[in-house]
Nucleic acid binder design. Structure first.
Lengths: 250, 250
DNA sequence: CTTGCCCAATGTGTATACAATGGTATGTCG
DNA sequence: CGACATACCATTGTATACACATTGGGCAAG
């Protein structure tokens, strides 16, 4: 954003937060970070302010910065915000999508379809990479829709919410099989079916159908997340993100 | 937020932007502001970053900060964002409102009703204060609904958008009667009718009705704004805000 | 007269030194 | 022994000094 050092600090801290090296609630002292990064405290302060605007850290006067830690109330509110925006965006996408947008959405959907089928025949201990790829295509699907909505502000805002959500409390990838294989597979097929409905509505240009389908989809995601979070008693909800995921906000 | 000086600078610059003393596009040099406020450049820089996060200024590396100036594309996108959020919030309000929330909404509605009728019998050169009060009750109505929605994040976000909208391009209060009195009165009655519909839906707990009514309402506001903006050829779209309005973001 | 470059002036970005404040540990008194 | 007051310390907030990027104007060449 500004010059080299501010960006340096920003990227450094952001990555550390996003890949879990800095846990939610952990305090970030400017001095420590500045020597770690090799710059002075000033650009570090700037970076922290920026990250605060992103919603990744909180700053209190004279008490310093901490990695943001959202409570259940905030979490619910964020989910609802995401629901509002992303469903609306789906409605827009149905109206504004180009053929190219449609192809991109379709591609992501097809890829997910293939991967979902593939997983069924994959031994559980070898499915890690496939899951990773599935996640990636899932994100690609949602991003493709936001792009098709032709509203950059909305897209940016939604991506911001996605990112906070992922860092702050994540669905604990289904590898932690607190539920059995059959249920997980069923859920995956459910997601796929919802995606297909959303795609169909967007393809046909049915705005309200697309909106409602997306709303239902995200509501399901939220329900599932909450359920998983409730079952995992660990207070620590964050999960490291891959390099790829880290850069999915513009 | 932080300490005294940063807040000082933040409040000072923010007010100057919001009441129109600093026009959109105008450049903000840290040195000038710092001597004006009587602090050093550091807190000024901090304030500018904060204002950038609020969406009121833009900062470019080595080029400094300018009061934000949105083009038509951004303006449309912001309006749509507001539409998405505020209509959703109306739907939430229909589900979550308490009796007290309802009373507050109703009060604002009644006040607007009275003022709208009053205006008809007020000579055009004396209606200024009444218009001001009408605006205030209008804002109060919308805020009351956001409050009833019981989602602080959403409320904050909507208020942020409201504020940017007002500063950056405002409906040029109908005093600039580019249209005749009858049309303006008709529009006022239309707004009132829409508010009444929204209130009724919220009172009855009809979520989707409330949402759709709010969506229509805001769409009308946008349409009207765009029409007024189009008719006024002046490139300068900002309007000073009153002290009261300045502080309507928490 | 136009066009290109160079250079100075303006202003930002960064570092460092200093002031102010909150937290903590220690000591004293009830 | 416990509670409160106080003094110290760590860390943030602020100011200032310096380095460097951008911009605009002047000067020279075509």
């Amino acid at each position: 954003m500004k010059s080299v050092n501010s960006d340096l600090a920003y990227d450094y801290i952001r990555k550390r937060i996003l890949n879990g090296k800095l846990a939610p609630g952990q305090s970030l002292t400017t001095k420590t970070l500045s020597v770690e990064i090799g710059v002075s405290r000033t650009p570090v302060r700037d970076a922290l302010r920026q990250l605060e605007a992103d919603g990744l850290v909180t700053i209190q006067t004279h008490l310093g910065a901490r990695v943001r830690k959202v409570d259940l109330k905030e979490f619910r509110e964020m989910c609802l915000l995401r629901l509002a925006l992303e469903s609306f965006a789906a409605g827009l996408a149905a109206m504004n999508r180009t053929e190219e947008d449609l192809r991109e959405i379709s591609d992501a959907l097809d890829a997910m379809r293939g991967l979902t089928e593939l997983i069924v025949t994959t031994p559980m201990d070898k499915e890690g990479p496939v899951l990773e790829e599935l996640r990636r295509e899932d994100v690609r699907f949602h991003i493709a829709i936001m792009t098709a909505a032709k509203n950059d502000l909305m897209k940016t805002e939604i991506l911001r919410l996605h990112l906070i959500n992922r860092v702050v409390s994540t669905p604990v990838p289904e590898t932690e099989a607190s539920v059995n294989r059959k249920a997980v597979d069923a859920r995956r097929r459910g997601v796929l079916a919802e995606h297909a409905q959303i795609y169909a509505a967007i393809a046909k240009g049915e705005s309200t159908t697309a909106r409602d389908a997306m709303a239902k989809h995200i509501q399901d995601i939220i329900d599932n997340t909450v359920r998983v979070l409730a079952s995992s008693k660990s207070g620590r909800l964050s999960r490291p993100l891959t390099e790829e995921e880290l850069s999915y906000v513009p």
